[in-house]
């Protein structure tokens, strides 16, 4: 039992990790089958986890209703919206000509687009507060930001015709250099964490204790 709880998961992670790693270097047919087999299995596992997740969501909101927590009425909305949607969805499917599809069309999509559009407000206020030359670093941020921002709209041309060209230069040179450095570092860190997981050195994800 102790073996199943402690050693077995670590061994399983090692075997799975090594198999999938080596698979990448084998061009033969079975290698591809292994890949799709694994990802399909992962999809099934996620499906079960989704049931657990939904129970968690419902439990969270039921709890609020039961405790009559402040604003529990809104939790009722979530629960009702979820239940009607999943029933309609599973019974009539989710295509556009069905009730679920109609709700998707006229509720889901506009709310999604609106949340996305709020970014215009946030980006403006973030720019206003962050683009201050408090330090030399902030000054670099400020100048690069202003040039690229204004170089992309027609009014930039009225300030200087070279502004657009310079904005492109910043995007293609210093900007690219910075992100290249980040990506190189991240890639190395990812190799390191992957190796730690495969070799069972990093096992936070398995929890601890019993």
């Amino acid at each position: 039992m102790q073996f199943l709880r402690k050693q077995f998961p670590v061994m399983l992670a090692f075997v799975m990790g090594m198999t999938m790693f080596i698979r990448e270097f084998v061009p033969a047919k079975f290698s591809e089958r292994l890949y799709y087999g694994f990802t399909n299995w992962a999809i099934v596992i996620t499906g079960f986890a989704a049931v657990f997740a939904i129970l968690s969501l419902l439990h969270h909101h039921m709890n609020k209703v039961r405790r009559r927590a402040q604003g529990y009425g809104y939790s009722v909305i979530t629960i009702l919206a979820f239940i009607q949607m999943i029933i309609l969805g599973l019974v009539f499917s989710v295509e556009p000509r069905t009730p679920a599809g109609w709700e998707y069309q006229w509720m889901f999509v506009p709310m999604q687009a609106t949340m996305f559009a709020t970014l215009a407000f946030f980006i403006a206020s973030a720019a206003f507060r962050a683009f201050r030359a408090r330090t030399w670093e902030a000054l670099a941020l400020l100048i690069a930001g202003l040039i690229v921002m204004i170089g992309r709209v027609p009014i930039g041309e009225y300030i200087s015709t070279h502004l657009g060209t310079f904005a492109d230069w910043i995007m293609n040179n210093p900007n690219m250099a910075g992100f290249r450095g980040i990506v190189l570092g991240v890639a190395l860190a990812q190799v390191a964490i992957a190796v730690r997981i495969i070799f069972g050195i990093e096992r936070t994800y398995m929890g601890g204790g019993d």
């Binding site: 403006a124 720019a127 206003f128 400020l142 921002m149 709209v153």
Partner: peptide, 17 residues
């Protein structure tokens, strides 16, 4: 609209600085 928003942000930032 694009130009106006960009100009607005630009002016606000410059003034703030």
């Amino acid at each position: 609209s694009q130009s106006m928003v960009h100009a607005l942000i630009f002016v606000a930032i410059v003034l703030a600085n």
